[in-house]
């Protein structure tokens, strides 16, 4: 018995030391700048001043390429940020949202629902969940490959997480690749169930938002290649059960006017700048019409937003022109091949 207790203490002590080593190594291997904390420019939210974001959009690449919060600031002074990156899952989003709440108090959290059904490769639901949750709980697992970025110069450098993104998480894509799928929201009467673990974490997100007095709004970014009515029905059912508002921009009654011949860069998976502009405008109208969101333009503490707005306007003018050119070319090609 005595030796058994000794062994248990021994193993416990070892595991504690190991855990410390793992977390220290994880902290050390975190990117030196928040620019590289996550895919796209999601990490830029850490560079924003505390409690300045009123609308937080969370999702995967569809959100990153489809929703441009700076457009809301330019139009109505609403501050927003799109925290989104490729293949971000519901599990990732839960943990990232929890950490964002440490610095921000968004009034509205917009959850893009593409993440509910997306899964990488041939992973099972359990494998995907374990992989993503481990990534979030053990930073060393998520950032392990950053050892390649270490050089003699930055070996002892402090982390600097003050980088800000003038696009506020939006990634403009200016190319065009038409989608010719036609009607993808036809009714076959089915409802795709939400996977069990995903559902569990959706419930946790709902609770987290309620605990922080944020309104949770579910939306689906138009995506002709990955969305359908069965998925819509699955999300609608979840929204109804939880008393949440759900806006599916793939549906005819909420369609922001997406032209699938010109507004997508990749055959309907994502939106380009032309499509993002339409979706952002439609969502912005809904947000300002349904939530008490303040106009921060000219307010003290938001000077950097005014500067960013000027830079954003300039860059978007160029991006729109470039995208329009690509769209015109695409239309001419389609006409020729018709």
């Amino acid at each position: 018995m005595k030796s058994c207790i000794k062994h248990i203490l021994h193993v416990t002590a070892f595991l504690l030391v190991l855990a410390m080593a793992v977390f220290l190594a994880g902290h050390y291997l975190m990117p030196h700048s928040n620019r590289y904390l996550s895919g796209y420019t999601a990490g830029g939210i850490l560079g924003e001043d505390f409690d300045t974001i009123d609308v937080l959009v969370m999702g995967d690449s569809n959100a990153a390429q489809g929703i441009s919060p700076m457009q809301w600031y330019c139009d109505s002074g609403v501050t927003g940020y799109t925290y989104a990156s490729g293949w971000l899952s519901v599990y990732n989003i839960y943990y990232r949202l929890r950490s964002i709440y440490e610095e921000q108090s968004p009034k509205v959290v917009v959850l893009c629902t593409d993440v509910v059904y997306s899964r990488m490769g041939d992973e099972t639901e359990l494998q995907a969940a374990i992989g993503d949750i481990t990534d979030e709980l053990i930073p060393l697992v998520r950032f392990h490959d950053n050892w390649k970025d270490l050089t003699w110069d930055n070996l002892l450098e402090e982390h600097d997480y003050s980088w800000r993104d003038t696009n506020k998480g939006f990634t403009p894509i200016t190319t065009v690749g038409a989608s010719m799928r036609g009607d993808y929201m036809y009714d076959d009467g089915s409802r795709e169930p939400i996977p069990l673990l995903v559902r569990l974490y959706l419930d946790r997100i709902v609770k987290l938002c309620r605990d922080h007095d944020s309104e949770l709004l579910l939306i689906t970014v138009p995506a002709s290649s990955s969305w359908n009515l069965a998925r819509h029905n699955g999300i609608q059912s979840f929204a109804d059960e939880n008393g949440l508002t759900y806006l599916d921009y793939n549906m005819a009654d909420t369609d922001p006017g997406i032209n699938w011949k010109t507004d997508t860069p990749d055959g309907g998976s994502h939106l380009n700048v032309l499509g993002a502009q339409k979706l952002t405008a439609a969502l912005g109208t809904y947000l300002t019409g349904h939530y008490a969101l303040e106009d921060h333009r000219g307010q003290s503490g938001f000077e950097s937003w005014d500067q960013d707005a000027a830079a954003y306007t300039q860059s978007m003018t160029d991006a729109l022109a470039q995208n329009q050119q690509a769209a015109d070319y695409q239309l001419s090609v389609l006409e020729q091949t018709a």
């Binding site: 793992v22 392990h144 490959d145 050892w147």
Partner: peptide
């Protein structure tokens, strides 16, 4: 002993070829 064991675990976690890349 502990140094060797911890180094082995860290080596797998850091240099293991897993993840997105």
């Amino acid at each position: 002993r502990w140094t060797v064991y911890i180094a082995a675990v860290l080596a797998i976690m850091i240099f293991g070829a897993y993840g997105d890349n």
